[in-house]
Computed example of a mutant assay.
Amino acid sequence: MFRLSVLFVFFIGNIVAQDSTTVKRILSFQEKLNKDFTTEEISPLPSKAIKNFKTLDFFEIDTSFCIRAKFIRTPHETPFIMKTTTGREPLYVKYGEAHFVLQEKKCVLMIYENQGLKTQPEYEDYLFLPFTDLTNGKSSYNGGRFIDLKTPKDGFILIDFNTAYNPYCAYNDRYSCPIPPEENNLDIKILAGVKKYDKHPENK
């Protein structure tokens, strides 16, 4: 008999199995997000709220919400103006589609590329995934949440709902935020990622 000393990421269907590497990556995401919220230069919080801020409220880490989705590139899409919470009119293009099964339901999410950001070197491989689900207005922000992605190198893309975060307008109405298109509404509960801000007692 022998004992494996290394933990590997493996897949059950399209779901990444729970392992230490995946959990550490999610914890690192949470730590960085909390740090950003305490840094006055980049925090979306009003100045007074930064002083009282301790932590965002996260759903428990659950890697059943870490999805290896089939990625279909859509290279001939027409750029469009994505609706926002203000009169701002950012230009996006549908970059591709993510197909996967979650909670026994077939799901398709549209993935977008911000046409203004793609000219900046640090965002050249950046993709944007806004979505809504059945937790909105209850345990998560009513306006939906976002996930940052990288351009996939093959026919699959990793979508980790544990890294879903709120738009800045969830914390401060001086921000203008994209509104997730209706086509990205999931008819399931995504119990992963950041919860509603006012749900966390430590920030009161």
Rank of each mutant, 00 (worst) to 15 (best):
L4A: 13
E97S: 07
A170N: 05
L149Q: 04
S28Q: 07
L45P: 13
P75H: 01
F8Q: 14
R3I: 00
L117Q: 15
G137T: 03
I147F: 12
T39Q: 04
K195I: 00
P90V: 03
Y95I: 12
I67D: 10
Y141C: 03
T38M: 13
K189E: 15
K24V: 02
R174F: 10
I147K: 04
G143V: 02
S64Q: 09
S43N: 12
P178I: 00
Y112I: 11
V23K: 08
G116Y: 02
K48R: 10
E183C: 07
Y171E: 14
K138M: 05
F128G: 10
I159N: 13
P201K: 00
L56M: 08
L158P: 15
K105D: 03
T55V: 06
F156G: 12
I12H: 13
M82K: 03
K106Y: 01
P180M: 01
L102T: 01
K196N: 12
I67G: 13
K48T: 12
T22C: 04
G87I: 05
L158V: 05
P152I: 00
T63M: 04
G137I: 01
A49M: 11
K70E: 08
H200S: 15
C177W: 01
G13F: 02
Y123H: 13
I26E: 03
L109E: 05
I72N: 11
D173Y: 07
F161T: 04
R174H: 15
I72K: 13
K106A: 14
C66E: 09
K204F: 12
L191A: 09
I159C: 12
I12N: 14
T135A: 06
T119R: 09
R145I: 00
V194Y: 03
D173Q: 15
P181V: 01
R25W: 07
K189S: 15
L56Y: 00
L149S: 09
S139H: 08
D125K: 11
L27K: 10
K51A: 08
V101Y: 09
Y168S: 10
D133A: 04
S20T: 13
L102H: 08
N203Q: 08
S47Q: 14
I67K: 05
P79C: 05
E113V: 13
P75W: 02
F161W: 08
M82S: 09
K118R: 11
V9S: 11
L7Q: 13
A17G: 09
E124G: 08
N203L: 04
T132I: 09
A69M: 02
L7K: 11
I61K: 01
L134K: 05
I188Y: 06
F53W: 03
C66S: 14
K32N: 06
D187Y: 10
L91H: 05
P180R: 02
L91R: 10
Q103T: 00
F29W: 10
R68Q: 14
F131S: 04
L91P: 15
T39R: 03
A49C: 10
T119N: 15
G87A: 11
I67Y: 02
T135M: 05
R174A: 08
T55I: 07
T74Y: 03
V16Q: 06
L191E: 15
D173I: 11
S64H: 06
E124Y: 12
G96H: 03
E202I: 06
F100V: 02
